[in-house]
Design a protein around this nucleic acid. Structure first.
Lengths: 196, 196
DNA sequence: GTCTATACCTGGATAGAC
DNA sequence: GTCTATCCAGGTATAGAC
């Protein structure tokens, strides 16, 4: 009811702080201060730190699905949809250079912590993986659609880690160009298949 | 003199624990227990947690330089040396799948923490970057040697992040094969240049 | 050089008043 | 629903005996 607002504000601030500073490095006090509530009030909405993490991952799952659906709606051409994914590292360049990829850095941190929510955070990767898989199938690459999807994911993660470390805009631009050329090659192959 | 042993054992255990569990998640107690000394004794060797981190990064810098020198010594062909780098994700596959890339995960974590040692950890990346740069120059690619070096680094980081998240051996093998083919293409280009 | 003991702080979590 | 007060565990760091 009325408390949805506060709960959602907590999730939004926790989402931001976890992205910017890491999960372990984000304390209840940090989140409470950001929202503007007391530490005690916090526990009315979330009983533990793990519960906030679950809520944040859930929110990210929702927004990721919305983004993927929007990409699919914007274009009926699977190659254009995949290009939207590739261009994401440019679209979010400023944030990536500051804080890395929100998915990659969270998964890496939770893995190091041996955190129970690790499989859930990996689901964020899987969301992209299966979506990319579908697009490559539509391009006529049923046989290796998953391998191509993983390659595209690896591209995004490699670029994100190094952009984060070196703060190099031109590097990102070069890698995106290279990746788009790779995609063009796959589209050209797909166009030839019916002719064989 | 005699205390070198204890100091080095501390660094070695800290190195391992920071890699396995992350810097922030590794406490003095963890390291002291692993070494088999008391917490108090710890401070005889290192005055702060930052000092251990510096020592660990220093040790990693040394061992990385030794590895790069060994690769250069093993083969006089720059393409073979670069191949040694590409194959590193297979050589260290088991550890990477468990804990990710030691360089990438440390740099990402220190960046999130806003830690003062961030530039030093990035130097680990730079060590690979400049070494790869040199090898590509030897292949006759002075013009874009750094771009190629960064591409090779991005490959290794992308593979490491996803191998860590998904624990997929075949994915690593596929990406390594793809990367070796890419390298072969560069070598073939280099062979053609004198003929033009 | 190594130990025990301890001071001090931060962070997660709870109790109970309003 | 929100607050203050408080407890407790764990982590950094120091003091001082051996």
């Amino acid at each position: 009811m009325a408390d949805i607002t506060t709960r959602e504000r907590i999730i939004a601030e926790a989402d931001r702080l976890i992205y910017e500073n890491g999960y372990e490095h984000t304390s209840f006090a940090d989140i409470a201060d950001a929202v503007g509530i007391s530490r005690g009030n916090f526990y009315y909405h979330f009983k533990s730190k793990d519960e906030i993490l679950d809520a944040v991952i859930g929110k990210r799952m929702m927004s990721t699905e919305q983004m993927l659906n929007a990409w699919a709606a914007q274009s009926s051409h699977p190659a254009e949809r995949i290009r939207s994914f590739i261009l994401m590292v440019v679209t979010n360049q400023a944030k990536i250079m500051r804080h890395g990829c929100p998915v990659g850095t969270l998964c890496s941190e939770l893995a190091k912590l041996g955190h129970a929510a690790q499989p859930q955070s990996n689901q964020l990767f899987s969301l992209f993986r299966t979506w990319l898989h579908q697009q490559f199938v539509l391009l006529g690459r049923e046989a290796d659609a998953d391998a191509l999807a993983m390659h595209a994911l690896a591209f995004s993660q490699g670029v994100a880690v190094l952009a984060h470390a070196f703060n190099d805009e031109q590097f990102v631009a070069r890698e995106v160009e290279r990746m788009c050329a790779w995609l063009d090659g796959i589209v050209a192959d797909a166009a030839q298949v019916p002719a064989i």
